[in-house]
Design a protein around this nucleic acid. Structure first.
Lengths: 238, 238
DNA sequence: ATGCCAAGAAATGTGCACATCCTGTTGGAG
DNA sequence: CTCCAACAGGATGTGCACATTTCTTGGCAT
């Protein structure tokens, strides 16, 4: 239904952005899918310019790829691109866990322990959806605990691009981190001050993710825009 | 795929983007300056929407900051933000030089030597402008030699934000890297396979840059848009 | 004289319509 | 039957005009 032309509604932009992002995260949009503006505008019930702006933002953030005068498409990550992303993550996250191992506040230790506890709880009750979220947040949490906003933002971008493969190609297998004990072991090494061990575990953890993704090639299923956004609409949460 | 003779429409966006970026790089725009769209459109001789799109891109890349319904402004980097950027650079670049020290191709060694030679030549003939460019490219070159496009792109973004301070606050002192021998020493350590030494030199190098920047606080000079873009206009090269 | 309020002006944000380009189709020729 | 070219339909890109918000200036009351 048409929303009345409210005043400066900055939340509408975020809503459209979030809707597309959520559709990708749910695996509704297969790699190679063309996101045409009129269809999205009609389905989401917003103007075309709104969709246009959100698309441009997603392109700039690396979620979508645009071809001039052709349209914007859901990218199909090659194995090499994925390997490179994980390579950068390895550099950053190894340094992160090393730093945290060498020194961290009591509050940081508390947050880390709480996160691991929550992950274990989610694993025990087999809550795949929650575990999927928590697994990603674990890596962001480590960056946050370094107290460097720039680092956190950068790593979050890399992580979203990393998990894009799971979201797009293997949405059913909602396990984006290999071993269920990996995060716990890394946390233990950090809390125990074993920098070398923590770094080694992290490198092994990330390497495991690469092999896991390589084992699941992306499936190209043609999807319809209207069908993909069934029940997604625009919401406020991230 | 052969490029078709288009109507220079795509290049116009890049031209406006480059013009603003060049004005910042020349130190014409002081931190806190408001970039209003009509004035820019008039000065650059393009439509307001073109300016608008370029501004949005610059905001998203971190060069400018936007306040809804207020406008876009040239940011004034705090010392803390700068320190965080250099912190992330330290993590990445230490890993980079370590990797290069542990193994690199003959072609990589050749490019590295050639770069250092060119830097020394620029230093000898006191070509500050060229040295400024080369000093920045050195760090990008190291990333390129790792053969990871994602890494290169990421580091390039960090580097542009790092040098922004020099561009905005201290444009006259065109020395963005502390010691003239630092790059040469780092290159020697890499070529000699001394990973620990190379990493240590790089960390010291970056730390020196932070103290150098902290010693030059940003100057707030009120500038006029028309005056700032005198003789800049839109060009095609980057 | 100073602080507050209101009206005008300018800048930002948004929807709309048109121009341009791409794509799929259809018709005809070889 | 196949291939190529022109055409129609549709999607993207862009300029323009208007709505909304904010800043400024002038006037008024304390």
């Amino acid at each position: 239904m048409p929303r009345k032309p409210r005043k400066g509604d900055v939340a509408a932009d975020e809503a459209v952005y979030g809707a597309i992002r959520r559709a990708m995260h749910m695996g509704r949009l297969a790699p190679g899918t063309k996101l045409q503006e009129p269809a999205l505008a009609r389905v989401l019930g917003v103007s075309r310019e709104r969709v246009r702006k959100a698309l441009h933002r997603l392109v700039h953030e690396g979620w979508l790829t645009a071809i001039p005068n052709r349209g914007t498409f859901v990218p199909s990550l090659t194995v090499e691109e994925m390997r490179q992303i994980y390579d950068v993550r390895s550099m950053l996250e190894a340094a992160i866990v090393r730093r945290l191992s060498e020194g961290h506040t009591a509050a940081a230790a508390k947050r880390l322990k709480a996160h691991v506890t929550e992950e274990k709880a989610a694993t025990r009750r087999d809550d795949r959806g929650r575990l999927f979220e928590l697994s990603g947040e674990f890596h962001v949490l480590l960056a946050e605990l370094c107290g460097n906003d720039e680092l956190t933002r950068l790593l979050r971008g890399l992580l979203t691009r990393s998990t894009m493969h799971f979201s797009l190609a293997a949405p059913r297998q909602l396990t984006n981190c290999a071993g269920p004990h990996d995060h716990g072991d890394i946390a233990d090494a950090i809390l125990g001050g074993k920098a070398d061990k923590a770094a080694k575990l992290m490198l092994g953890h990330l390497a495991g993710l690469v092999t896991l993704q390589a084992a699941h090639p992306p499936q190209h299923e043609p999807v319809d825009i209207e069908e993909a956004f069934r029940g997604i609409k625009a919401r406020r949460d991230s």
